[in-house]
């Protein structure tokens, strides 16, 4: 196909068009621009707003925009914030740990012992996650409730005299629900990393005299570590800030930092405080993530 240029032949292109044709960087940026725009509007701008607002203070329904560190000082000084942060890390840490421990064997089984229709197995395992998150949380309310599945079953079996009250409206309930709700996010990365392991390495280890336990610890576990790390981050980060699960199942003592942040933007009406809390939460998650990464690196080096 012949293109007819809109400028007469023989005259070099000038200005923007010429520059654009020459510059690879400009063309690359132009290609990325839709995504970049979304990133900028959706992530960078809100983050800047959040950081800026964290230095403001509330004044009635408006803001006093003189920059100050008061909000951060309050977070450090008042026990409520520290307690909520610590509780969130504890609840979500336990939930993450339990999820990975429970999902590892499942992923292991599919990766090593299922040879046909692997995809079907994976789909079946993630089937519960095709329903909405909220629906699953409500389902756990039905299961753990005062007249719920667990309590009625135990009552009819005669194991208990009165319904167990700690099942619902407690940190236990939040941990159980988070563990179930986020299982898919552990199974998939664990499966992928286990699937990639070269089976001949395992055979070699056996040939060289390693028993099943040593073989697992020296070959399988270290090689599946990327999956474990991915699962840890995929579950720990969102569950720490989770809001709806503790709101529906947590009861008075099960509230987490996400609920506190929501309150600042809702009835308490202290947006700068909410912004500062979000920043602190982000920094803490970042720091804990780095520590975790560092520890796994260290462990891997030791094992190697």
């Amino acid at each position: 196909m012949v293109t007819v240029p809109d400028v007469p032949l023989g005259r070099p292109r000038k200005g923007f068009a010429a520059w654009f044709r020459r510059s690879e960087a400009a063309q690359g940026l132009a290609l990325m621009s839709p995504t970049l725009l979304v990133l900028l509007i959706g992530i960078a701008v809100p983050l800047v707003i959040l950081i800026t607002m964290g230095f403001w203070t509330r004044e009635g329904f408006g803001f006093d925009t003189t920059p100050t560190l008061d909000n951060y000082a309050r977070i450090g000084a008042e026990p409520i914030f520290v307690t909520f942060l610590a509780r969130s890390f504890m609840v979500s840490g336990i939930a993450t740990l339990v999820t990975i421990l429970l999902c590892y064997p499942m992923a292991y089984y599919v990766a090593f012992h299922v040879h046909r229709n692997k995809m079907l197995w994976i789909v079946l395992m993630t089937l519960p996650f095709w329903t909405s998150y909220l629906l699953r949380v409500f389902a756990w309310r039905v299961v753990l409730g005062y007249e719920g599945v667990v309590n009625s079953a135990f009552l009819s079996l005669g194991w208990i005299e009165a319904p167990l009250e700690f099942l619902l409206y407690s940190q236990t309930a939040v941990i159980i629900t988070l563990t179930h709700a986020w299982a898919a996010f552990a199974i998939l990365p664990l499966y992928v990393s286990l699937e990639k392991i070269d089976k001949s390495l395992l055979e070699a280890a056996t040939d060289l005299g390693d028993g099943p336990v040593r073989r697992f610890l020296r070959i399988t576990l270290p090689l599946s570590m990327p999956g474990v790390v991915a699962a840890f981050f995929l579950i720990f980060i969102p569950t720490t800030g989770d809001f709806i699960t503790p709101a529906l199942l947590g009861g008075p003592d099960g509230m987490m930092i996400g609920n506190l942040i929501q309150l600042q933007f809702g009835p308490v009406n202290n947006w700068p405080m909410g912004a500062a809390l979000s920043i602190v939460l982000m920094l803490w998650i970042g720091a804990l993530g780095l520590v975790f990464l560092f520890l796994t690196r260290l462990a891997k080096r030791r094992l190697a």
Partner: peptide, 19 residues
């Protein structure tokens, strides 16, 4: 007034949270 309302809500939330 608004100040009272915000303070009341904040205090109630603190109490609910156990503080």
């Amino acid at each position: 007034n608004q100040e009272w309302e915000s303070r009341m809500n904040e205090t109630y939330e603190m109490i609910k949270a156990g503080f």
